[in-house]
């Protein structure tokens, strides 16, 4: 079974700081990590390889530094890693990114059959969740996003049953293979890398593809030229007007709580006293679907 996983190296957004003067990101000192969802996609691919045999190929589009992320994938158990890197790819939006990844996958398809494509649900730096669905659409393969669990997979019969998480519950979907899944973290717990993988990764050098070699990408569809969206303006979120701050140590507990409830009542947001038979929004469908 051959699985292709697409990953992204991202800044660890929990450590991102903003320069308050300029409103721009301070990138120095922000560690780069494998997008957390993508780790689980790689793990799933490795688990499938252990079960069915076959291989795991990992691809990423990014700066040369993204090779680090690919080497981590080798530690996890990936067999082959491809770094698609070229200054011409820079400033790609999701449409241009899905073009590059889909075109790269088409080139891999020419080398031999692929049974499954895995993407993380979304990247934590952009949170768009668009690239996986975009690639599935371009490759014209079935898409299952928000994949939670693989109930069964049969590479011989070319069919899989996958659980997909939605707001209302879990859809159980049967799909033809090859298919493209965008996965949630629950799809496969990440395990510690075994020693032989670490040894192999220490010496591993990812393949590097440019915008012309070995795949002649359409230069009109990549990077900024291939991106219909542009950032018009970026700024730090405007703070909401802060209200009073009262201290239990100064006013005492009872007085603080009394003032808080008076403030809530006076705001008219809710009438606390009237909520006796409070309706709890427990209907999974009715509340959302008016």
């Amino acid at each position: 079974m051959h699985t292709v996983v697409a990953i992204k190296q991202v800044p660890d957004t929990t450590n991102v700081r903003i320069n308050p003067e300029t409103g721009t990101l301070i990138r120095e000192g922000v560690p780069a990590i494998i997008n957390p969802y993508d780790l689980h996609a790689v793990e799933l691919a490795v688990r499938l390889k252990e079960h069915f045999g076959g291989k795991v190929t990992v691809i990423t589009m990014g700066p040369p530094k993204a090779a680090e992320a690919l080497i981590e994938c080798v530690e996890q158990g990936a067999d082959r890693c491809i770094l698609i890197t070229d200054r011409k790819f820079a400033a790609a939006d999701t449409l241009a990114t899905s073009y590059v990844l889909a075109r790269a996958i088409e080139a891999l398809q020419e080398e031999g059959p692929i049974d499954l494509y895995l993407f993380g649900l979304q990247a934590i730096d952009g949170d768009t969740a668009q690239v996986g669905p975009g690639v599935a659409t371009r490759l014209n393969v079935p898409l299952i996003s928000y994949a939670l669990h693989i109930e069964s997979i049969d590479p011989e019969a070319r069919v899989a049953v996958v659980h997909r998480k939605t707001e209302r519950g879990i859809e159980v979907l049967r799909t033809r293979l090859p298919a493209l899944l965008t996965v949630l973290k629950e799809i496969a717990p990440v395990q510690r890398a075994p020693l032989p993988n670490l040894i192999r990764a220490a010496r591993y050098k990812p393949e590097v593809w440019s915008s012309t070699d070995p795949v002649p990408f359409d230069q009109d569809q990549i990077g900024i030229r291939g991106s219909p969206t542009v950032v018009g303006r970026a700024y730090t979120p405007a703070p909401r007007q802060a209200g009073d701050i009262i201290r239990v140590s100064e006013l005492g507990l009872q007085e603080c709580v009394k003032r808080a409830l008076q403030n809530v009542q006076a705001s008219g947001a809710v009438d606390l006293a009237s909520i006796v038979d409070a309706k709890r929004p427990t209907d999974g469908n009715g509340g959302e679907h008016s």
Binding site: R240, A242, G243, S249, C256, V257, R259, A260, L261, A273
Partner: peptide, 28 residues
């Protein structure tokens, strides 16, 4: 969180929430 709060109470939630429960019960 106090920068966006309509009202902020500096205190221990394990004191403040039980007192909120008491006073809301009394109101209701």
């Amino acid at each position: 969180i106090f920068q966006i709060a309509s009202l902020g109470i500096v205190g221990d939630l394990y004191e403040v929430i039980p007192e909120l429960i008491n006073q809301v019960k009394a109101m209701q």
